[in-house]
Simulated scan of single mutants.
Amino acid sequence: MEPVIQEEASGCGIAASAALAGVPYADARRVANGLGIHAEDQTPWSDTRHVRTLLSAFHITTSPMETPFTSWEALPDKALLAIKWRREGELPFWHWVVFVRQGGHAYVLDSRKPLRSHLRRDFGRMKPRWFIEVYD
């Protein structure tokens, strides 16, 4: 699985969905926009419903609930992680990343444009709040 870089400041959900679907960001954005999901609107990224809808459009199934993060070892082989969780006024916000474990290796695909490497293994620096399991 390859990282996909977000093109808008709040496009992490679109980028994470694109990485899971194996499509370019522009394709995922086009599908998202057709579903009424727009990165410019920051409120979708304080609700899991929008990213679930987008993933469903790509025929990707997810767990119906969010699971609190306890440890990296306890994560399933594929998951959407909510990191950088915070409150802005009444709304919670977070940054979506994709956790992958395959071939005995674990890594995170992070779509943030300024990063030097979008394939991360610096697990101690990321502070996940919860995750959504992604099924193959």
Score class of each variant (00 low, 15 high):
87 R>K: 14
116 R>T: 11
65 M>I: 14
114 P>R: 11
71 S>M: 07
71 S>P: 06
63 S>K: 08
103 G>Q: 05
121 R>D: 11
75 L>R: 10
67 T>H: 12
48 T>K: 07
25 Y>I: 11
117 S>E: 12
59 H>I: 00
94 W>T: 03
72 W>S: 08
100 V>R: 15
84 K>H: 13
68 P>T: 08
84 K>I: 00
97 V>W: 00
86 R>S: 13
101 R>C: 01
26 A>Y: 05
35 L>H: 11
96 W>K: 02
32 A>V: 10
69 F>T: 06
31 V>H: 05
75 L>S: 07
101 R>P: 00
95 H>N: 05
108 V>C: 10
63 S>C: 11
111 S>G: 11
68 P>E: 14
26 A>W: 06
82 A>R: 09
124 G>W: 01
118 H>M: 03
24 P>F: 04
80 L>P: 06
25 Y>N: 12
110 D>E: 02
99 F>W: 15
36 G>W: 04
51 V>E: 10
84 K>C: 03
69 F>E: 04
37 I>Y: 09
121 R>M: 15
83 I>C: 04
122 D>P: 07
28 A>M: 09
27 D>V: 13
21 A>T: 09
106 A>Y: 03
49 R>H: 10
93 F>A: 11
26 A>L: 09
27 D>Y: 04
66 E>R: 15
28 A>E: 09
79 A>K: 04
41 D>G: 00
92 P>T: 13
70 T>E: 14
121 R>S: 13
116 R>C: 00
94 W>F: 08
45 W>Q: 14
78 K>D: 01
57 A>K: 10
86 R>I: 06
53 T>A: 15
23 V>C: 13
48 T>D: 12
40 E>M: 06
101 R>W: 00
99 F>P: 01
64 P>W: 05
58 F>C: 02
85 W>H: 15
91 L>P: 00
84 K>W: 10
53 T>S: 15
106 A>E: 15
39 A>R: 02
82 A>I: 00
98 V>A: 13
115 L>V: 03
94 W>K: 03
123 F>A: 02
100 V>M: 13
77 D>A: 13
98 V>C: 12
105 H>R: 15
85 W>V: 08
47 D>Q: 12
121 R>N: 08
54 L>N: 04
44 P>T: 07
94 W>C: 04
124 G>C: 06
73 E>D: 15
34 G>R: 08
52 R>N: 06
90 E>S: 14
75 L>W: 11
104 G>E: 02
98 V>F: 08
40 E>H: 06
48 T>R: 12
58 F>E: 01
120 R>A: 14
59 H>T: 10
51 V>I: 15
65 M>L: 11
112 R>N: 11
83 I>W: 02
48 T>P: 07
32 A>I: 09
72 W>L: 11
71 S>D: 06
89 G>Y: 13
81 L>P: 05
46 S>W: 03
41 D>F: 06
81 L>G: 06
115 L>A: 03
54 L>D: 05
32 A>D: 11
74 A>T: 08
45 W>K: 10
23 V>S: 12
21 A>V: 10
53 T>P: 00
81 L>H: 08
117 S>I: 02
114 P>S: 05
119 L>A: 09
102 Q>G: 01
115 L>T: 03
77 D>L: 04
76 P>R: 02
87 R>W: 15
91 L>W: 13
22 G>C: 10
48 T>E: 12
96 W>H: 04
52 R>A: 04
53 T>F: 01
